[in-house]
Nucleic acid binder design. Sequence first.
DNA 1: TTTTTAATGCAAGTTAGTTGCATCTATGTT
DNA 2: AACATAGATGCAACTAACTTGCATTAAAAA
Lengths: 137, 137
Amino acid sequence: MSDILKSKKLKVTPARMVVLEVFEHTEKPVSAEEVIKKVSKFKVDQVTVYRTLHSFEEVNIIRRVDMRKGAVFYELASLHHHHVICTKCGDVEDFDFCIGDTVEKKIVKHSKKFSKINDHSLELFSVCKPCIKNSKK
Amino acid sequence: MSDILKSKKLKVTPARMVVLEVFEHTEKPVSAEEVIKKVSKFKVDQVTVYRTLHSFEEVNIIRRVDMRKGAVFYELASLHHHHVICTKCGDVEDFDFCIGDTVEKKIVKHSKKFSKINDHSLELFSVCKPCIKNSKK
DNA sequence: TTTTTAATGCAAGTTAGTTGCATCTATGTT
DNA sequence: AACATAGATGCAACTAACTTGCATTAAAAA
């Protein structure tokens, strides 16, 4: 459990462990606010949460997901999938294929400025069936 | 020029026209802050810019681009391409193919919650060659 | 066990974006 | 063309999300 932190040369601290746990027990991408709420019972300050999220992002434990909300959302970087996001209610559906490899090869071949790709994000946006129903009422 | 606004049933106002112009004369995705700066000589208030960006987004004149910065960036929705973004300096390279159609078909076929896709965003992240050089010094 | 290096908490500050409200203007109607 | 009206704008105040500085504490290296 703490191995991932050690392998990234991050000190293993209680705060980091509980933040990690949040990600390992959540399906959907989570915002800083949600993490703060969930770890508050362990007396972890919100500033620490923000800093933890930054360092996790930096070493590629988590990645950002643009949910088109005010805040930044994150998920485990080890998940190789993409999302369809409902722009009305924010509901998320994962789908289990990743276009990464194909696209990255194609890019690198043609790019002048970049010789490799580190990460990517693909989000699809729509309105889910329940929300369409509601708006028709 | 104002046709796009009319076709979206938005009133044609000076503020909206100059914001539109900003997008039509810019290569890279722009933040609200940049738009505010560029239209300030026309005495357009920043609140108006934020509201204009929202309504343009809503009617699909522009789309968000997640640059992994603090702020939201936008580009014309009519552009069908994707970006590679340097996470050090923020430099952007476009590439002129769009995975949209293929992926959307695949998704819609398998999805339980969504019956169509409205929009998507694909960004690739890396560090550009100049930044790699600099960091080695 | 000591020393070093990095993480944490608290308070205060900043940035990006939002809301309420009075006024004004673009556009449809007579 | 004049009028009505829905919607757009500007200003000031406000909020949300995140950041910084600094003194204290804890993890890991020596």
